[in-house]
């Protein structure tokens, strides 16, 4: 059942765009945040709002890897196995996480607490090996640190992303992707040590960009 409040939010998303259909991806994210997956009723609601057939909506929902037709875990764990991470230790992290959770790629633990995914490059190769929890960065993670994060989440402890907020649930993150504010944009650092490596080095060496107003000699 799609509640009236959800239906209203789905319509609100469609209303952000000059052409309503553009809202479909964020609408599917919203469904996942509400239901834990993309359900048949959810697909029907999107189709109805956008004037599409359910087949058209299903075709979209099945194309993208972030949408799931089965309920996902409370926490969605990703481990980057693209070579930039895999070689630097990501394969070991993935193996450790699999054995800690007792599941493999695209599976959910029996208690519904965790789902696991082998993910591709997360645009954080400078921070390899990279793990994500509900898509928040857990940068430069060792197999031991990865298992510790999972132990703490399993125990209900508060875990903090290395470059992001305190970890909520996967459904909370899906709501952010649907475009709804959760008040956490100011959490975590502006930039971490690795993002600042060049700036720090430039300052140490007294290097700067030429100021605006300076020109090439002779011009």
């Amino acid at each position: 059942m799609i509640e009236a409040t959800t239906r209203a939010e789905l319509e609100q998303i469609a209303g952000r765009y000059p052409v309503a259909r553009s809202g479909l991806l964020p609408m599917l994210h919203l469904l996942q945040s509400v239901q834990g997956h993309v359900s048949t009723e959810g697909i029907e609601a999107c189709a109805d709002i956008l004037g599409l057939s359910t087949a058209e909506v299903t075709a979209v929902a099945t194309f993208y890897t972030m949408y799931h037709d089965e309920p996902q875990g409370e926490h969605h764990i990703g481990v980057c196995i693209n070579p930039g991470c895999a070689i630097l230790g990501g394969d070991d992290v993935y193996a450790a996480v699999c054995s800690r959770l007792g599941i493999g790629h695209d599976q959910v633990t029996a208690d519904g607490k965790f789902s696991l995914e082998r993910i591709e490059c997360q645009a954080a190769c400078t921070h390899a090996p990279v793990m994500t929890v509900n898509w928040e960065f857990m940068d430069r993670v060792s197999p031991e640190a990865a298992v510790e994060v999972i132990d703490r989440l399993a125990a209900g402890e508060q875990v903090e992303s290395t470059r992001g907020p305190k970890i909520g649930t996967w459904r909370d993150a899906e709501r952010v992707l649907a475009g709804f504010d959760d008040g956490k944009s100011g959490d975590g650092p502006a930039a971490d040590e690795l993002m600042l490596a060049g700036l720090k080095r430039a300052k140490e060496l007294g290097m700067k960009a030429p100021a605006v107003g300076t020109q090439k000699a002779g011009e």
């Binding site: 502006a190 060049g198 700036l199 080095r201």
Partner: peptide, 21 residues
């Protein structure tokens, strides 16, 4: 060749992502 932070020049300020920053 030196480093020339322009886009990243103020990323080390704690509020670099805000309008005020």
């Amino acid at each position: 060749t030196g480093l020339t932070p322009v886009l990243s020049a103020h990323w080390d300020e704690p509020d670099s992502y805000t309008l005020a920053g």
